[in-house]
């Protein structure tokens, strides 16, 4: 599903990844683990093409598209669910509108959007908060909202960058449960974290990164 072949890139002086090779298979839950600056986010950003490798190949869903841009890039991103370290919910819209955003971008009919978003909010236990704005939500609710937004377009992979960052213990447990559930339903997950312990028993594999290189696991 996702294959990195000897990928290197330096997006800032002394910051980047070097000679990274790994494979994430369909239905897997793979953890990218390492300290801050190890290159976890760089790998995720490379997958959703916010940055481009200096060398090597990134093969996504069987396709190697080094020059993917514009319309094609947009279509590729629609197939991925992205969760950022910060929830990045739009502050001027309520939770419903935030979760509905990807579907509206796709131009889905209003009725379908309402149905799918309500279903998703119900699943995440957020239906009562649908009219709330991000500032009125707890950090755990914001994170769940961000994951709901990432999943609403039925992506083939969930790329989660620090999904448990800045949330309390109870919210972490809820999110871990959600991640476990959706992975059991067949969703491929690649999550980056600097604290791997909570994912024990949920993630299938862990790729350890240090200074932009894979230290073990592939």
């Amino acid at each position: 599903m996702i294959r990195f072949v000897n990928v290197s890139l330096e997006h800032q002086p002394d910051r980047g990844i070097s000679g990274i090779s790994f494979v994430v298979k369909r239905g897997e839950f793979v953890l990218l683990n390492g300290p801050t600056g190890a290159g976890k986010t760089t790998i995720l950003r490379t997958i959703y093409r916010e940055i481009h490798p200096d060398s090597g190949q990134v093969i996504i869903d069987g396709q190697f598209q080094p020059n993917c841009s514009g319309h094609d890039l947009s279509l590729l991103r629609r197939k991925m669910g992205i969760v950022f370290p910060e929830p990045h919910l739009l502050t001027d819209r309520n939770l419903f509108e935030n979760v509905a955003f990807p579907l509206r971008i796709e131009g889905q009919p209003r009725r379908k959007v309402r149905l799918q978003v309500n279903r998703m909010l119900f699943r995440f236990g957020l239906q009562a908060r649908s009219k709330s704005f991000p500032a009125e939500l707890s950090s755990g609710e914001q994170k769940k909202g961000a994951i709901a937004r990432a999943l609403i377009g039925r992506p083939f992979i969930l790329l989660a960058d620090e999904p448990l960052a800045n949330i309390d213990h109870d919210a972490s447990l809820e999110i871990l449960d959600i991640l476990r559930q959706i992975n059991e339903e067949g969703m491929t997950i690649l999550a980056a974290t600097h604290i791997p312990e909570p994912f024990k028993g949920i993630a299938h594999r862990t790729l350890h990164l240090k200074d932009g290189r894979l230290s073990h696991g592939s």
Binding site: G70, R78, I82
Partner: peptide, 16 residues
């Protein structure tokens, strides 16, 4: 800019 960046990452085409 934040909305634009998010739109782009969530799959809005540059033309849109």
């Amino acid at each position: 800019s934040e909305t634009v960046q998010l739109m782009s990452l969530l799959g809005a085409t540059p033309r849109t």
